[in-house]
Design a protein around this nucleic acid. Structure first.
Lengths: 130, 130
DNA sequence: TATAATAACAGTAACGATTATCGTTATTGT
DNA sequence: ACAATAACGATAATCGTTACTGTTATTATA
């Protein structure tokens, strides 16, 4: 009694996301996957993104507005550019990851999200700041 | 030539938020401020929340779905409960804040947001996990 | 203190990202 | 092959937030 059947759509979505180094929004991903499967429905994309998040195969990045998605589940941090709004990976050493102090808390801490804000290299060169 | 006039509504919103120790959503704050100013419009609330964020008087907490707001601008971290969705303060020592390593990045890093996830003390006692 | 300019308001419509519904298609165990 | 049903495409609904519009209230100046 299997719960998750294979689907060409889900495979295409996951493979597309894994092949990218950016962190696309749902719409960016939708437009990209549609080049391979033009009939792909937006509802199908969202349904699969939710399932992939729930099963831990992808990560959702939130900072107000649209969500961004990342197929890299290894621990790493992100920077969000104040100018262009894009997310970039911050390659972090294992020592740095371990350096984040886990606070004392009368509950259970399981995970964390660390997002830096600033100006990405591209925007810094191009226009200057906000 | 003044740009920001005083308004009873904005004062009430900011004072209400400052008097709370939770981190309410816009709607929670709206319902609360309406007890003092029943005529308060939702548009007015959002307009002022945006202005207060832009001027750095309050902070917006994002994790998908609704935004939460916090009138404490001193550096501190948060935990979001996987069960009830609420945000709680994590009192952090100055040493811990300094311990967060700022990564090397070919751009400009200005700020960061650190959100822990887990089960809050209340949910841990009450129901168990998700 | 009255007056004029306009920031801010209340009320409401519009927007946009996401989710839900529904009839159809495709996967999978028998 | 066949039946059961997960997943799909298409589209409607949801809901948090923003934009618009006519009115009210603040503030600088007379």
């Amino acid at each position: 009694m299997q719960q998750t059947r294979k689907s060409r759509q889900r495979d295409a979505i996951l493979n597309n996301l894994r092949a990218r180094c950016d962190h696309p929004t749902a719409m960016e991903l939708y437009l990209s996957v549609r080049e391979e499967i033009p009939s792909l429905s937006l509802g199908t994309l969202y349904r699969n993104l939710k399932g992939l998040c729930d099963s831990g195969q992808i990560i959702r990045l939130s900072d107000g507005g649209e969500e961004h998605y990342d197929a890299c589940t290894a621990p790493h941090w992100h920077i969000k550019c104040d100018c262009c709004g894009r997310f970039y990976d911050l390659p972090v050493s294992p020592e740095a990851v371990l350096a984040v102090p886990i606070p004392e808390y009368d509950g259970e801490i399981r995970d964390y999200s660390l997002i830096f804000f600033g100006v990405c290299a591209h925007c810094a060169r191009t226009a200057g700041e906000k």
